[in-house]
């Protein structure tokens, strides 16, 4: 029976696979000639190096140079290099979808449609085929259960403005992190700037990366975060650190982080190969399993102890809106919080 099934499937799929693998073979060949791909990414360092390693193990001879920093810094570096005529970046990946509106407008992206993106939902795609959501991140409230009991823990974004949290909160920065940029934009739509002004009276500790509040909360430096990248908190928690996650009842900002190939990519084939790889089920599943991320891939399964996206009230933000509000959010945030 099994044999029959195998041969049947071979008979059915071989032609298709052959066609694809012929394409693949030439792409792989070209990528190997280029030898490497420079990946400007805002994915947390441990996660991005893990993904790069998975790729390198699969395609020996194509090195992934991981250049990891915050989304806004990635954009800054890309734009500085463009200005100076330096062609170094192959793939650009940030968590501020607005960046891709900007980069596309300026003609800095290469149109490329990876095969794997056929199955992902519309919210993860640019309609013209320039960029695709590689992963989705939620922003949530992390707290330290050693310091704050479950009953005391805040259940909503609004509760965080309560003066009882004065000196106990930490926030990441939209001027660094695309996740936090999207987070602020999402909450602005709910509560307006007054919410942030009230929040600032609680004397927040400011860090940069959306991942950093996890460490700050787990160490006890501040017992509660007013935001944090959920996947990083999940990982921190799984490593045995004292940290718990609250999915606030008003809704959870959904951050879709696109990836795109730079128009002047010095290693275009390697960039295409890596982009193809990113959207394979294998890579997307790895992001979900190992890194605790959500993805647009419909067949990916998630750890049992994480909520399904459809169980949550999600607060997505439109990329165009993010691009429009980027400068204002950076400026107002600094005015309100001081730096």
């Amino acid at each position: 029976m099994r044999k029959i099934f195998v041969s049947l499937s071979v008979a059915l799929f071989v032609p298709l696979v052959n066609l694809a693998s012929a394409q693949d073979a030439s792409l792989i060949e070209a990528a190997k000639r280029e030898g490497k791909v420079a990946w400007y990414t805002s994915l947390a360092l441990p996660s991005s190096t893990a993904l790069a390693k998975l790729f390198q193990d699969k395609y020996k001879g194509v090195e992934v140079e991981v250049h990891r920093t915050g989304s806004q810094r990635v954009l800054q570096r890309v734009m500085q290099e463009v200005q100076a005529g330096i062609k170094n970046a192959d793939i650009i990946h940030t968590s501020d979808a607005g960046h891709f509106v900007l980069l596309k407008d300026k003609g800095l992206l290469m149109k490329y449609v990876p095969r794997g993106t056929a199955v992902i939902p519309d919210g993860f795609k640019d309609k013209d085929g320039f960029y695709y959501g590689m992963r989705a991140t939620l922003t949530i409230i992390p707290y330290n259960p050693k310091i704050i009991s479950e009953s005391e823990a805040p259940r909503s974004w609004r509760e965080l403005v309560d003066p009882k949290w004065k000196g106990k909160l930490v926030t990441a920065h939209p001027g660094y992190s695309g996740i936090i940029m999207t987070h602020v934009a999402a909450l602005l739509n709910q509560f307006g700037w007054d919410y942030f002004k009230e929040l600032s009276r609680n004397r927040l500790h400011l860090v940069q990366s959306a991942n950093d509040p996890a460490g700050v909360v787990a160490s006890g430096e501040r017992p509660v975060g007013v935001n944090c990248a959920e996947y990083f908190c999940y990982k921190t928690m799984k490593q045995g650190n004292p940290l718990k996650i609250v999915y606030p009842k008003e809704g959870v900002p959904l951050v879709v982080s696109p990836t795109a190939i730079a128009k002047d990519a010095p290693h275009p084939s390697a960039a295409k190969l890596f982009t193809e790889f990113i959207f394979t089920k294998e890579a997307q599943q790895m992001l979900a399993d190992r890194e605790g991320l959500y993805t647009g891939h419909p067949e990916v399964t998630y750890p049992k102890d994480k909520p399904r996206l459809k169980e949550l009230k999600l607060l997505p933000v439109d990329p165009q809106e993010l691009e429009d509000k980027n400068a204002e959010i950076k400026k107002r945030f600094v005015e309100i919080f001081g730096a």
Partner: peptide, 22 residues
């Protein structure tokens, strides 16, 4: 040490002015 509590100095301010849009 300064930025986490909203304290800028001249050097950090100059650095911040390099962020996009520079």
């Amino acid at each position: 040490l300064g930025l986490p509590s909203g304290i800028h100095t001249i050097t950090t301010q100059i650095w911040a002015l390099f962020q996009y849009p520079p």
